[in-house]
């Protein structure tokens, strides 16, 4: 099985970090993984995206044209990529910054006000991890506890506050209905 996940939003929203967490967890489950960031003019203009492919077999092209899952962090990303989602695929949209809804009836669309939830809970900059939590619940792609362990392992142990905030953010997203 191959899952192609496209994460897109503004630079600074933690898109690349979120993608890396997915890739790292998949690698620890002995899957084949590729993580390809945008580094071109769009990055300099403020938007960022990254393509994460997770597969049981060797990955051919690391470029995603038709994602199974689109995680859209802002409106420009929604506008640009929503139509590209594979039929039967999943859209997860940050509804704080994306006021429109998908009109497609061949995909499963989910909305979470991640940016608002982050600021209401004193987790500025944590919208990316909140969305990851929601992603875990919706896709059941990874074991929750294992995901937390690997995420925490990537943060210096001295930064206890950061570890707690990330755990809290992930839980918030996971529990969102």
């Amino acid at each position: 099985m191959t899952t192609e996940i496209l994460l897109a939003g503004f630079g600074g929203q933690g898109i690349l970090f979120a993608g890396k967490q997915l890739a790292k967890t998949a690698m620890h489950e002995d899957k084949c993984v590729s993580w390809l960031p945008s580094y071109g003019p769009e990055m300099r203009g403020g938007s960022a995206n990254c393509s994460v492919i997770i597969s049981d077999k060797e990955i051919g092209s690391p470029i995603i044209n038709r994602p199974d899952v689109l995680i859209a962090f802002n409106l420009p990303s929604f506008d640009k990529f929503e139509s590209k989602i594979k039929s039967g695929g999943i859209l997860i949209a940050n509804s704080t910054l994306i006021s429109t809804k998908s009109t497609r009836d061949d995909i499963n669309a989910y909305y979470i006000p991640a940016t608002q939830m982050a600021s209401e809970n004193g987790l500025e900059g944590g919208a990316n991890v909140i969305i990851l939590g929601y992603f875990l619940k919706l896709t059941k792609l990874f074991d929750y506890d294992k995901f937390v362990d690997l995420m925490v392992a990537g943060i210096p142990a001295t930064k206890t506050k950061l570890i707690e905030n990330n755990k809290k953010a992930l839980k918030l997203g996971y529990d969102y209905n």
Partner: peptide, 10 residues
């Protein structure tokens, strides 16, 4: 090339 330089893989 730029893609191989920038991408992450195990």
């Amino acid at each position: 090339d730029g893609a191989l330089g920038q991408m992450m893989e195990p």
